[in-house]
Amino acid sequence: MAKTSASSETERSYERFPLARRIEHLIMLSSFTTLGLTGLVQKFATSPTSQFLVSIMGGVENTRSIHHFAAIVLMLGTMWHIVVFGYNFFVLRTSLSMLPGPKDALDALQAFLYNVGLGKLVGFGKTRPQMGRYTFEEKAEYWAFVWGTAVMGVTGFLMWNPITSAKFLPGEIIPAAKAAHGGEAVLAVLAIILWHFYGVHIKFFNKAMWTGKMTEEQMQHEHPLELAAIKAGTADRRPDEMTIRKRQKIYFPIASVLVLGMLGGIYGFINTEETALTTIPPQEGQLVEVYVPQTATPRPTSTPTLVPTNTPLPTATTDASATPEGTLSAEGTPTTAAASCQLGWSRGSLIHAKMRGLSRRIRRIEFIHVCRCDQGRSIRCCLHRR
């Protein structure tokens, strides 16, 4: 049950978080901030700001080492949080007030309608929702942190131990883990800046995580249902000492095995393999050829052209059966000249002509009549360009 302290009726306060929870929050805050700072400068490495911060931290090798150390602290903090949760749940029998429920969805809808001023119109949301120990915002933020920690842990292991991971999973999982790791990092940092900072430091400056207490007025505004339960004596009550000792005898061995297992997992996480590439700084005054091909790259050559041939030109004829359409002139217009057939042409032929020193390709030419030579006799053809 929450402890109360008061020097007068107006200064009455209630304990919100014990010292152990506040220390845990400080450790997680420090590790998260360090991870975000050292991780984003590696994700956006070409940014001038990132390069400046990396230089302050002593280079990319030191930045990577700091990032790994902060990750280890985060894993240890997560392990401690699991052990404390088990103790509170099994030994002290505290209620699972952080679990979301249907009331949280209704509280979120009511708060939205109240904030936008539509509560009076729809008949729901005329007042602020009455919430208990944890509001729907705090629950959403807590479980978002749990989800983000799980994603960052899994993807971080895949990147920290890529060879071991590729033995059991497809190789494509490594770049996918890198993309998910960086995306989740950006999402987490934005959630803290835009959501947590606003809800805790701007909308209402909540100092409970630093002082451990909240005044009665603050409790009435933020957690009225919890305040009512405390005053009514129905809030979580601490069991008697004999019951606590009996439960501790059961829980401590289980927790010890759990802690040893998690410590072994963290050790394996860190020392499974050593595959990170060491960044070698450039040597001043030393020129190194990065790539020297064994064979020279061939230079591009000009496109070969066909050798021009002496093809006989068409000769005119006075045959009365000549049609006005005759053949094509140099400009592509019909003439009355007859075609002296020296070659056999077929439908859809391609004619290449060389004009003024350039190779010119005349588009497909369709012959209505096929011209053939029969014992040296010339016949007329009608040429049409498609």
Score class of each variant (00 low, 15 high):
Leu74Ser: 03
Arg64Met: 06
Val146Pro: 00
Gly101Asn: 04
Arg64Asn: 06
Trp143Phe: 13
Arg93His: 02
Tyr134Asp: 01
Gly125Asp: 04
Ile56Lys: 12
Asp104Tyr: 08
Leu169Cys: 10
Asp104Leu: 11
Ala140Asp: 06
Ala105Cys: 03
Lys103Pro: 00
Gly117Arg: 12
Asp104Glu: 13
Ser165Pro: 02
Ser165Asn: 06
Ala166Asp: 02
Arg93Trp: 10
Ala108Tyr: 06
Val116Pro: 01
Glu61Lys: 09
Phe69Met: 14
Gln110Ile: 04
Gly117Ala: 07
Ala185Met: 13
Ser165Val: 12
Ile82Trp: 11
Asn161Val: 06
Pro100Asp: 09
Thr164Ser: 14
Trp143His: 08
Ser95Cys: 05
Ile66Glu: 07
Pro175Arg: 13
Gly59Met: 10
Glu61Tyr: 11
Glu172Leu: 15
Leu99Ser: 08
Gly148His: 07
Tyr87Lys: 10
Phe89Gln: 10
Val84Phe: 14
Ser65Cys: 00
Lys120Tyr: 10
Trp160Cys: 08
Asn161Asp: 10
Ala179Lys: 15
His67Met: 01
Val83Leu: 12
Asn161Pro: 00
Val189Leu: 11
Ile66Pro: 00
Pro129Glu: 15
Ser95Ile: 12
Arg133His: 13
Gly153Gln: 03
Thr149Val: 06
Gln130Phe: 09
Met57Ser: 14
Ile163Asp: 14
Gly117Leu: 06
Tyr134Asn: 01
Lys103Thr: 06
Gly148Glu: 13
Ile56Val: 07
Thr78Val: 04
His68Phe: 13
Val73Tyr: 03
Gly153His: 04
Ala70Gly: 03
Val91Cys: 09
Gly77Met: 02
Ser95Tyr: 14
Gly171Glu: 15
Ala176Met: 15
Ala179Leu: 14
Asn62Met: 07
Phe124Lys: 04
Phe85Thr: 14
Gly171Ser: 13
Gly171Tyr: 11
Pro162Asp: 09
Gln110Asn: 11
Ala177Leu: 07
Leu109Ala: 01
Thr155Asp: 03
Glu61Gln: 13
Ala180Lys: 01
Val189Lys: 08
Gly125Lys: 00
Met75Arg: 02
His67Cys: 00
Ala71Asp: 12
Val83Ala: 11
Ser97Lys: 15
Trp80Val: 12
His181Glu: 13
Ile56Ala: 08
Lys178Trp: 12
Met131Pro: 00
Ile66Trp: 07
Lys126Asp: 09
Ser55Pro: 02
Asn115Leu: 13
Glu138Ser: 03
Met79Glu: 07
Val83Glu: 15
Pro129Ser: 14
Trp160Met: 14
Thr94Gly: 09
Gly77Trp: 05
Ile163Cys: 04
Ile66Ser: 00
Glu141Arg: 04
Glu172His: 02
Phe145Gln: 11
Thr164Ile: 04
Val146Asp: 10
Met79Thr: 12
Ala188Glu: 03
Leu121Asp: 15
Leu99Tyr: 14
Ser65Tyr: 04
Leu96Arg: 13
Glu184His: 05
